[in-house]
Simulated assay, not measured.
Amino acid sequence: MNATNTMNTEYRLVVLGAGYTGMLAAIRLARRTRNRTVRITLVDPSARFTERLRMHQIATGQELAEYRIADILDGTGIEFVQGRATAIDAIAGRVTVDGTATLRYDELIYALGSGTDSSAIPGAAEHAWTLNDPRSAHRFAERLTVAEARGGAVAVCGAGLTGIEAATEIAEQHPGLRVTLVSSAEPGSMMGEKARAYLNRALDRLGITRAIGQRITKVLPDAVELADGTLIPADLTLTTTGVRVPPLAEESGIATDQRGRVVVDATLRSVSHPNIHAIGDAAAVRQPWGEIHGTCQSGMPTAAYVADAIVRRLRGKKVAPFRFGYIHQPVGLGRKDAVIQFTKADDTPGRFYLTGKAAVLYKETVSSSPVPIFGLSRRFAAVPVQPYKGGRATAHLA
Rank of each mutant, 00 (worst) to 15 (best):
N2F: 10
T4I: 15
L16R: 05
A25E: 06
L29A: 12
T33M: 05
P45H: 07
S46C: 08
R48N: 14
T50G: 00
R52P: 03
M55E: 09
A70K: 10
L73K: 04
G75E: 11
D89C: 07
D89W: 10
G99D: 09
A101C: 00
L103H: 07
R104D: 12
E107T: 14
L108V: 05
A111H: 03
G115I: 05
G115P: 04
D117H: 03
D117N: 13
S119F: 10
H127E: 09
T130N: 06
P134S: 10
H138Y: 09
E142V: 11
T145N: 10
A149E: 14
R150T: 15
V154H: 04
G163M: 04
T168V: 11
T168G: 10
I170M: 07
E172M: 12
P187H: 09
M190G: 06
M190N: 11
E193L: 12
R196T: 09
N200L: 15
G207S: 09
R215E: 13
L220M: 11
D228R: 04
L236W: 01
L236S: 01
T237H: 05
L238T: 01
T240I: 01
G242E: 01
V245Y: 02
E250Q: 11
G253L: 12
I254F: 13
Q258S: 14
R261I: 02
T267S: 05
L268M: 08
S270Q: 08
H273T: 14
H277Y: 15
I279E: 00
G280V: 00
Q287N: 03
P288C: 00
T295S: 08
T302F: 03
A309C: 01
A309F: 05
R323W: 05
I327D: 03
Q329C: 04
P330S: 08
G332P: 07
L333S: 09
G334V: 09
V339Y: 10
K344S: 09
D346A: 04
R351Y: 13
V360E: 12
S367Y: 13
S369C: 00
G375I: 04
S377P: 09
V383Q: 01
K389M: 08
A393G: 15
T394R: 06
A398C: 13
